[in-house]
Amino acid sequence: MGAYFTEIFRGLQSLAIGLGITFKEFFQPVVTVSYPYETIKMSERYRGHIELIEDEEGKAKCVVCGMCERACPSGCISLASESVEYEVEVKGEMKTKKKKVLTKYDLNFTTCSLCGQCVENCNFGAITFSKDYNLASSRKEDFHFDLLNRLKERNS
């Protein structure tokens, strides 16, 4: 008999505690972010697709060593370059030298697994992850990114 009443009492008590919790929550501020009207800042370590980093002159930092292309397990990076001659002053003399300049940096994002090998392997700190997550399209061509072009657009 005693157990019967303690059980009822305990039950009622726990129900009251539950009601108390929801009552408190009722007056707390809403935590919903009404995407797409509102967005939150992506965390530091968020991994989007890769993006080229620019140097002081606004050009791509990439020296076209090809390490990223080789490191990528999915083969989604393809590079192209051309040699340009430029002049430097060495010991008071002008000399012409050659260097490679990036002409194409294509990322096929449809096969990228976001593993980060490309960023790991770049010795020159020329690529990084972007914070872009609003990626939606019904055509797969939209996921072939021309990163060089994106860099230009960012700067213009």
Binding site: F26, Q28, V30, V31, T32, S34
Partner: peptide, 10 residues
């Protein structure tokens, strides 16, 4: 609305 408030959504 009440359900929303209790679950802290609008």
């Amino acid at each position: 609305r009440g359900a929303g408030r209790i679950q802290r959504r609008p």
